[in-house]
Each structure stands twice: as structure tokens, then as C-alpha cells.
């Protein structure tokens, strides 16, 4: 089963990237995210007049890899619909949630590498003391946060079976995460309802945990945050599983699976 999963993931990745040369791929996956990251950190530096940029470098490098999970998963069915392959996937016995995960597996792997490269390069630029922290723990935080974000991405993928406005939905969600997960704006300064929202979103706890690696040594609180992030992810996965089942049946009833 694992063999089939990785084979499918590889075929998906190959199909999505065969058009790019190695240089183009590297530029797109490494340089572009890095420039985005720099932009947000600079923005924060000037608008908050911050001396220490650690918080923003950490938060924004997180957002980068999470974007990949959100977008590749969220668009999973949409791109198949446009290319007329959705019917083959729906009619095949394969679980639809698994089929979308297969599509996103390699992009997510690449984005973990991106976030690491981005984190280290921007740490050098903005003098963040990354060499003082346990990079393995940082890696764990990244992976658990991506798991949680994937749950959200899959939940959105369910929507794409019923609507063709995925670009709008995904971009809105992206900004919601950017505003409310604590990467750029301190949650403490937000109104109460926003605080509640931020606690229900993936990433909030992950970013807090990553920041903790720099600011304080509190293993119990750190573990609690990681566990919380994992639970949020598990809840979103479960919701996504149910939502995809429901969306498939609704789409079959309403004939919204195909454009033509």
C-alpha cells in the first residue's frame, strides 16, 4: 500500500513538473519563497520598529511551507476537473482523500526543504541566532504544523467538488491564516473573537512552539503546544474525510463534477 502511495505520488509529481527544467524548478521553489519571506519580514521590521526579527522570520518561514500544503491540497480536485480526469478518479475505487494526498506528497516534501533553506538564509540576513536552537526540534514543529495545515487543505479540497471558485476560497483562507495564526500580528493584541478563531486554526500553536525554542526553555509547555497542534490536525483530517464523502455524493446528485 505504501509502495502504491509513493508510486502515485511520484507519478503526480513527475506529471506536474516535467515541463520545468531543473533551474526553473529551483528558482520557482526556492528563490520565489525566499523573496516572499524577505518581503514580509522587512514589512514587519519597519511597521513594528522591531529590533529582534526572530519572531517574524520563524512565523513567515512557517507560513511558506503551509501555503504549499494548503494550495496543492485545496486545488487537488480542481486541477483534475479542468483536465477532465476527475471522472476517472471519482469512478475508480481509490479513496478520494488518499488520491489528493498523493498529489500533494512531493510538493509538501519539497516545501519542508524550502522552509529550512528559507529559514537559514533569512536567519543569516536578519541575524537570527538559529545555531543556538535544536534544529531537530524545529523540524518536528514544522512537520506537525504541516500535518495540521494539510487537514485544513483537505477540508477545502472537499469544497472544490461542489464549487468552481477555489481560487477565491484558497486566497481568502491564506490571508485568514496570515492574519490570525500569529506569524505577523501578535494574537494578544487582537479582539477576543479573533483569539478564539486563532486557537481553532492550524499553525497558531506551531508558530508559538517554534518561537519558544528561541525565547524560553519550557519542555512541558512546548510538548503541550505540539500535541495541541497535532490534535487540531487530526480533527481537520477527520472533518475532511467526512466532508469529501459528503461532497462526492452531493456532486454526483447535482452534476457539478464536470465542466462539460
Amino acid at each position: 500500500m505504501l509502495r502504491r502511495f509513493s508510486h502515485q505520488a511520484w507519478l503526480n509529481f513527475k506529471g506536474a513538473n516535467a515541463a520545468f527544467s531543473f533551474e526553473e524548478f529551483t528558482l520557482l521553489r526556492l528563490l520565489y519563497p525566499l523573496v516572499t519571506l524577505t518581503f514580509y519580514v522587512l514589512l514587519a521590521a519597519y511597521s513594528f520598529n522591531a529590533e529582534n526579527l526572530t519572531h517574524w522570520v520563524v512565523g513567515n518561514s512557517f507560513l511558506l511551507c503551509v501555503n504549499v500544503s494548503l494550495f496543492t491540497l485545496g486545488q487537488g480536485f480542481d486541477s483534475e476537473r479542468i483536465d477532465g480526469r476527475l471522472r476517472s478518479i471519482i469512478v475508480a475505487p481509490e479513496n478520494k482523500l488518499v488520491a489528493v494526498l498523493q498529489k500533494a506528497a512531493f510538493p509538501m516534501l519539497v516545501s519542508v526543504i524550502t522552509v529550512f533553506a528559507g529559514f537559514i538564509v533569512s536567519s543569516l540576513i536578519f541575524s537570527v541566532p538559529f545555531y543556538e536552537i535544536n534544529l531537530w526540534l524545529f523540524m518536528v514543529v514544522v512537520i506537525v504544523s504541516m500535518f495540521a495545515a494539510s487537514g485544513l487543505g483537505l477540508l477545502l479540497a472537499a469544497l472544490s467538488l461542489m464549487t468552481d471558485s477555489m481560487h477565491l476560497i484558497l486566497n481568502t483562507m491564506n490571508y485568514v491564516l496570515m492574519i490570525f495564526c500569529g506569524a505577523n500580528f501578535p494574537i494578544a493584541q487582537m479582539p477576543a473573537w479573533a483569539g478564539v478563531l486563532s486557537q481553532a486554526l492550524p499553525l497558531t500553536r506551531g508558530i508559538e512552539a517554534a518561537n519558544m525554542l528561541f525565547t524560553q526553555n519550557n519542555p512541558a509547555a512546548f510538548a503541550g503546544l505540539i500535541f495541541g497542534e497535532f490534535v487540531i490536525g487530526a480533527i481537520f483530517f477527520l472533518l475532511a474525510f467526512l466532508a469529501i464523502k459528503y461532497a462526492e455524493r452531493t456532486a454526483i446528485r447535482r452534476a457539478s463534477l464536470e465542466l462539460f
Binding site: L11, G15, G84
Partner: peptide, 29 residues
């Protein structure tokens, strides 16, 4: 089998396409 040009991965070879669809049907390798 539907007529028309849509429905296959244009950036994969014919063999890879068939491997992909076999996997969707859980056909043993």
C-alpha cells in the same frame, strides 16, 4: 472509454499514465 482528448496526464508518458490509472484501481503491480 470516452471519446475526446481530455482525461490523461499530458506530461506523463503513455506507460506512466497507465501505471497511474492501474494504481487508482488497486491492480497489484
Amino acid at each position: 472509454i470516452f471519446g475526446g482528448e481530455l482525461g490523461v496526464y499530458r506530461r506523463l508518458s503513455a506507460r506512466d499514465n497507465l501505471a497511474y490509472f492501474s494504481n487508482l484501481y488497486h491492480v497489484p503491480p
